[in-house]
Amino acid sequence: MKNKSVAIIIYLLFSNKIAFAKEGMPQLNPEFWLSQILWLTIIFVILYFLIQKFFSPKLFALIDSRTNFIKSLLEEAESCKNQIQKLENEYNLIISEAKNQSKKISIKLKNDFNDKISLKRKEFENILNSETVKAEQEINNFKKQTLENIENIAGDFSKELIEKITGTAPNSSNLNAVILEISNKEKKSQYV
């Protein structure tokens, strides 16, 4: 009795759908519903099992290994960058030290050169002074000598002049005495 009522209910439920399916929508025909559910379950479970057990772990592992590989490369690049930075700092330090040293050497050389120049200048000045003194002495001597010779030249000139004017030769000793007297007077007037 119970089975009969269940069968009637199922018939009433599906008869409508079967009628509807026959009219237009084959999807509502329950004839192959259970078959489709069964095959869907079998195929889906097998597919899920294969993806879950084999493909998914393989791809996860691959992506993880690639991520790690990229990470390690990035770390390596970072360490290389740090090393380059360190070397650059060392290079800059060496360059700045060399610059300072060259500056110091250049200043020292300049000072040495200036000292040597001033020393040489002093030496030259000393030589110049001594030579100047010598030259002045020589000039004075020459002046003295010239003054002395001037008296003789003046005597001879005066003698010839008087002789030409008067026609008689004057006494040389008197003439020399007069010229000497005039010369002495001139010298005195010059030195006074």
């Binding site: 869907l40 597919l47 993806i51 084999f54 493909f55």
Partner: peptide, 24 residues
């Protein structure tokens, strides 16, 4: 009494699954 036959629907489910497996 329940029909569990292999249908055209099941066939295309199978074909699709095989394609996915080949793809992987």
């Amino acid at each position: 009494g329940v029909d569990l036959s292999f249908t055209n629907s099941s066939l295309f489910m199978l074909i699709s699954s095989i394609l996915i497996i080949i793809f992987f």
